[in-house]
């Protein structure tokens, strides 16, 4: 008996990925995360929980941070997507990437691409004046980021190494605000010079 071939519905989409127009055909079930990792070879965004609970898959769609694991690729025709691979500008690291290096804001690194993309989105949201759960005065037009604000705004990104103590100051550095946690952690550059992208990429 010949094996029955099951036709799985597929769709063609075109996205702008890290500035480059990319046309692909996807199984309708494919998440943006699987499209990036399995079809397009961009393995920066990580699959942690695949349920929108850990944030390791965070990328920017039309400049907003989202969970790539809960985003169906088929819905993204025409969308502009930025992943961790597209954040640096030539050889120049993105300020958030640089701050994560300077503050040694990671240990194993698995959650880091998601943390960094999420921080880029969160800093933009704060600059746009979006309040958070811990914002005292909802009527204030401008948001002042501090440790508590950053912890709340970054709560969608879990770090099982527990590098939060350095992630919070890194995000504040990148946002142009000082950390008020009083710990005054040493900066990584005091131990090691910060490598260029070329050096990191080997």
């Amino acid at each position: 008996m010949a094996a029955t071939r099951i036709e799985v519905p597929r769709s063609a989409i075109a996205i702008t990925l890290n500035g480059e127009r990319t046309a692909v055909e996807v199984d309708n079930r494919t998440s943006l995360l699987d499209l990036l990792r399995e079809q397009l070879g961009l393995t920066g965004a990580k699959k942690g929980c695949d349920h929108g609970q850990c944030g390791a898959c965070t990328v920017l769609v039309d400049s907003r941070r989202v969970n790539a694991c809960l985003t169906l690729a088929v819905t993204l025709d025409g969308a502009e997507i930025h992943t961790i691979e597209g954040l640096s500008d030539g050889g120049e690291l993105h300020p958030v990437q640089r701050a994560f290096l300077e503050r040694d804001a990671f240990q194993c690194g698995y959650c880091t691409p998601g943390q960094i993309c999420s921080a880029v989105g969160a800093i933009r949201e704060a600059k746009d004046g979006w309040p958070s759960h811990v914002t005292e005065d909802l009527s204030a037009a401008a948001v002042v980021l501090d440790d508590e604000e950053v912890r709340e705004r970054m709560s969608g990104n879990l770090c099982r190494c527990g590098a939060y103590a350095n992630i919070v100051p890194a995000v504040l550095d990148a946002a142009g605000e000082g950390s008020d946690d009083g710990t005054d952690l040493p900066r990584r550059e005091e131990f090691h010079p910060i490598p260029s992208v070329e050096e990191v990429a080997g």
């Binding site: 929108g52 944030g55 809960l70 985003t71 989105g121 958070s132 914002t135 705004r153 709560s155």
Partner: peptide, 12 residues
């Protein structure tokens, strides 16, 4: 709304 979910999920 601000007490619900995460920044990423609220954007979606």
């Amino acid at each position: 709304l601000l007490s619900a979910a995460s920044g990423q999920l609220r954007n979606m």
